[in-house]
Design a protein around this nucleic acid. Structure first.
Lengths: 210, 210
DNA sequence: CCTAGGAAGTAACAATGGTTACATTGCCAT
DNA sequence: ATGGCAATGTAACCATTGTTACTTCCTAGG
């Protein structure tokens, strides 16, 4: 396990901390679609994302979803961090967008390390910083963009995190993430196709490189 | 100054830290409407809010605004925290909603204190935690509520933070905060008045207690 | 090869919110 | 008291998004 740890976190953490993580952390592989964190759940251990993509969702009062942001290599979920520290329930759902590898850290270690390791403090603060900024970007999208622009941004974000210009999702799945209806997504996708920004196929979309 | 510090922060910080804050902090009074932090600005010192209310805003590409949340006694701006640590520009604007008293802390002290004081670490983490949750609530409002519900929530939030069921704002000012137009606000306020939830007057609104 | 069911296309309509334009009202300063 | 201006009321219209109700198309599994 130390191998993948040093590869992905070696430039972030001190050696002593890497060793501790190696000691107390649990390696975990999850496959696409599996739920890592559920709303209302107490968090017993914090996930560091080694490889893969995780999507973080919010749920409304009817059980409908809204994508907040994607997590990539080296990221961790600030909401989770937040829950761990405060011993509160999770306010979000986290789902593996692709097959992913994680290192799970027991909660009690986290506070110790905050006092002990400067690199851990920086990592935690940096995590909060980027997650706040990502949430701000999410607010921008929802508040300031029209649905067609949000859709296009969503598709671009998706190609970026998966590093694949083919998006393997149905219109219904996209509609869930954007908190709208399948018909609206189909309508706007067709418009974007006519504008030459993408190609529509059954169960997948190919983004046109610009 | 130590007087107001102990009153409002005595239960949060250790004595030694309170003394340090007293040493290095600068007391500052600002009046309603003054801008504390501007978008794009680098932060040289971090404000602790002693008394008053601060509103935190986001701006779109046309310069139009959107209220993110209010800060109250004992709060600080997580976005600012975040900027201090990362030496990045502010992504938000902060404006005094009422006359307010602040203690300004030089940035370089903050990192020292993180290593040194457990109460400071807890405060910083707690701040991030609540700000993240407030941003999530903002996302909920924008994404899941219709404009009339958002408006009512806004008015209730406002009465809560100012502890005054009379809201001293014009429809235009409310429209700016909600990122909509004055006509829409007037229309919906009139609807809410007909529903018996509030009374409209010139330049102020009285909320009906339910 | 055929068929059932999921996925996508599309039309028609409703609801919400944004925009323009103008009328009315209250209030302050002179 | 009154003229002027900011604040509010309101109507009419438009654009966007949501909804319903179909049809058509594709593909996996028999």
């Amino acid at each position: 396990m130390i191998q993948e740890l040093t590869t992905y976190f070696g430039h972030i953490f001190e050696d002593a901390l890497l060793h501790e993580i190696n000691q107390v952390g649990t390696f975990k592989e999850v496959s696409e679609g599996s739920t890592l964190i559920e709303i209302g759940q107490y968090i017993k251990s914090m996930p560091l994302l080694v490889t893969g993509v995780i999507k973080v969702l919010r749920e409304d009062s009817h059980g409908d979803e809204l994508l907040l942001y994607f997590l990539e290599n080296g990221d961790t979920c600030a909401m989770t961090l937040s829950c761990c520290m405060g011993q509160t329930k999770s306010e979000v759902r986290a789902i593996a967008e692709t097959d992913s590898k994680l290192v799970m850290i027991p909660v009690q270690k986290m506070e110790e390390w905050l006092a002990q390791y400067k690199s851990w403090r920086n990592y935690v603060l940096e995590t909060y910083h980027s997650r706040l900024n990502e949430l701000l970007e999410t607010v921008d999208s929802i508040a300031f963009l029209k649905m067609d622009e949000r859709l296009l941004k969503y598709l671009h974000d998706k190609t970026r995190v998966t590093n694949d210009r083919i998006i393997h999702n149905t219109h219904q799945e996209i509609a869930y993430d954007l908190h709208t209806s399948r018909v609206v997504v189909s309508r706007l996708l067709k418009k974007l196709e006519n504008m030459g920004k993408l190609e529509l196929h059954r169960s997948h979309i190919t983004m046109v490189t610009h």
